[in-house]
Computed example of a mutant assay.
Amino acid sequence: MASHIETSIILLSLVLFSLCKPSFSAGIAIYWGQNTDEGTLTETCATGNYQFVNIAFLSTFGSGSTPALNLAGHCDPNNNGCTGLSTDIKSCQGQGIKVLLSLGGGAGSYSLSSADDATQVASYLWNNFLGGQSGSRPLGDAVLDGIDFDIEAGSGQFWDNLANALKRFNQNLNLAAAPQCPFPDAHLDKAIQTGQFDFVWVQFYNNPQCQYVDNANNLLAAWNQWTSSPAKQVFLGLPASPAAAPSGGFIPADVLTSQVLPSIKSSAKYGGIMIWNRFADKQNGYSNSIKASV
């Protein structure tokens, strides 16, 4: 009888331990919205390959400009043509996928002129894409899971104010950032230092000094710098094909899984892989090749 009691206690302890362990498992984030040949948002999520989808981009905002989406031909926001994406977004979320709106990009017209401007942009984002209320929501009535900062132009000023203002609306709102791999990032360092960012998917491409070039030495050195930042989780951002990053950084799937992932997965902040972008991934099958190892 005693042995049965001891066995029961051990089993109960194991069950309680398993319930207390963190539930997060590493995943893949993808950017969608910049090529009509990438397929629909619903099709993207239906692959089962992604845990995060960044809708790219809100490319115009701030400094008194009228905010504007650029989804590269998927729909025309000027005639409310993108509101139908609400169904796609809800479909993705129904599969447990977090859908974020990405701000900026490499070819946008955006800036923040002051802390007050940042607060106004935060209010616009909250009311038009997140949990607030607006009579004109560009993506329909779906409530996005968060905001991604892909800031590649202008100064590094006031992005910290924007991050703080968004979190004041809802502390559980997901904030992501996509800095370049040279550490610290010229545009987003002050924002990341706030500690408000849940996911930081670092762009380890188009930056020869910290991307994979014949070996992973420079990449791993930069990775270690990024994991020392206040980011809650750090993702390795990679192009899905050589064409997706003209200045380099593509890592063949077999090299990634054998030479890079074993080194970075030991980090307590490792969150997974970010892929640029859905079109290149669809063409090249990159996420299919790596998802079992992420």
Rank of each mutant, 00 (worst) to 15 (best):
C45K: 00
L188C: 11
S229D: 06
F158S: 03
A68S: 14
A56K: 05
E152P: 13
L100S: 04
A165S: 12
A118C: 12
G104I: 11
F57E: 10
N161P: 03
V121D: 08
S136K: 13
Q209H: 00
L14C: 12
N161I: 00
Q51G: 10
L16G: 00
Y31L: 14
V213Y: 03
W126A: 00
S65Q: 14
C20T: 06
D116V: 14
A240V: 01
D141F: 08
G104Y: 08
V202C: 07
L261D: 12
A222D: 02
Q209G: 02
S25D: 08
S25T: 13
R137G: 02
L261F: 13
S109C: 01
Q157A: 14
S109Q: 15
L175R: 09
K167D: 06
A186L: 09
A107C: 04
Q209V: 01
A26V: 07
P230R: 06
S263H: 09
C45P: 05
A240R: 03
Q180R: 12
S293P: 04
Y110V: 03
Q283K: 10
S86W: 02
S59Q: 11
T227Y: 02
C82S: 06
C210K: 04
S8M: 10
L12W: 01
C75G: 05
I5N: 04
A72P: 03
S86C: 04
W201I: 02
R137Y: 02
N164L: 14
S3I: 05
P179E: 09
T42R: 14
V53P: 03
F279R: 14
L166D: 08
A292H: 06
S241M: 07
Y205D: 09
A240S: 12
V143C: 07
G106F: 02
G271R: 03
F279T: 05
A178P: 05
L144I: 02
W159K: 11
S267T: 04
S63I: 00
I28V: 13
L175K: 09
I55E: 06
G248H: 09
Q120V: 11
L85E: 04
D141T: 15
Y124I: 07
L19P: 04
G104M: 12
Q283I: 01
G132P: 05
T60L: 07
F158Y: 15
D76A: 04
D160Q: 11
Q34I: 03
A142Y: 07
T7F: 01
F52K: 04
L166I: 01
L85P: 02
G33F: 05
Q133K: 10
S18P: 02
M1R: 08
S102I: 04
S263V: 05
A222E: 06
L14V: 08
P179Y: 11
A165F: 01
Q259H: 11
P239D: 09
Q120A: 15
